[in-house]
């Protein structure tokens, strides 16, 4: 379960100070599917980075279960990301020179999983997203939807507790968007994943159990 207590994040940009998050307090129970919406520059991605242990708040406290992410050293944050948290990005962020299978395997590299088991688990993850027959293709040989499926397989292969998705359907057409959302919903339902999705797309947001609106660094609940 995520707990945020008075979390603020400020950036220095030349002479200006940007308040990306202002005194945000909220909790996200384990296994919840949450959608975060809001205008561009409102702080959605910053909040997702806090939840994903990619960055620390300037003030306030953020914890995942018993772990205090706001006071954790870089190495331990990296370990948290490697074991507990999966990421899906709008631009897929696959390694262009590696095949789909190898891209999925990269998520197991920091866990020290032996090569044979790594291959087996990566193959299973690709099967679970319906891409077993594309395992040996590099990203440029895959469609946008297929690339996002590979990215989801990479996020799930380590069996995380949390999946954070930043505009996962932002680069996809409507049909593919729905396929990806079906896939994510299924994984959330079947595995009991905590799923946090940042999206501009109201159709996507409507499928969430809980909707948050983030504007000017402030979070509000939406019905």
């Amino acid at each position: 379960m995520y707990t945020l207590e008075n979390v603020s994040k400020t950036y220095r940009q030349k002479e200006r100070t940007i308040h990306a998050l202002k005194d945000v307090s909220l909790s996200i129970p384990t296994g919840q599917l949450v959608a975060i919406q809001g205008p561009t520059g409102g702080g959605k991605s910053t909040l997702l980075q806090m939840l994903g242990a990619l960055d620390r708040p300037t003030t306030g406290r953020i914890s995942l279960g018993e772990a205090d992410l706001s006071g954790m050293p870089d190495a331990k944050l990296g370990r948290m990301r490697a074991t507990e948290i999966g990421f899906v990005f709008q631009g897929f962020n696959l390694i262009p020179t590696l095949t789909a299978q190898e891209n999925v395997e990269t998520a197991l590299e920091p866990l020290g999983v032996p090569a044979e088991e790594r291959r087996r688990r990566a193959t299973a993850a690709l099967e679970s997203v319906g891409l077993a027959d594309r395992a040996h293709h590099v990203p440029s040989e895959l469609s946008g939807g297929q690339q996002q499926r590979v990215a989801i397989a990479r996020a799930l292969v380590k069996e995380p507790d949390v999946l954070l998705a930043d505009e996962p359907t932002g680069n996809l057409d409507e049909q593919t968007r729905d396929e990806i959302m079906d896939l994510l919903e299924g994984l959330h339902r079947d595995r009991g994943l905590t799923l946090v999705i940042v999206t501009h797309d109201s159709a996507v947001a409507r499928r969430a159990e809980r909707r948050l609106h983030l504007a000017h660094g402030t979070v509000t609940e939406r019905a």
Partner: peptide, 12 residues
């Protein structure tokens, strides 16, 4: 982006 992604998924 490649290295940022790898760090995001836990590479040291």
């Amino acid at each position: 982006r490649e290295f940022g992604t790898l760090k995001a998924i836990g590479w040291s």
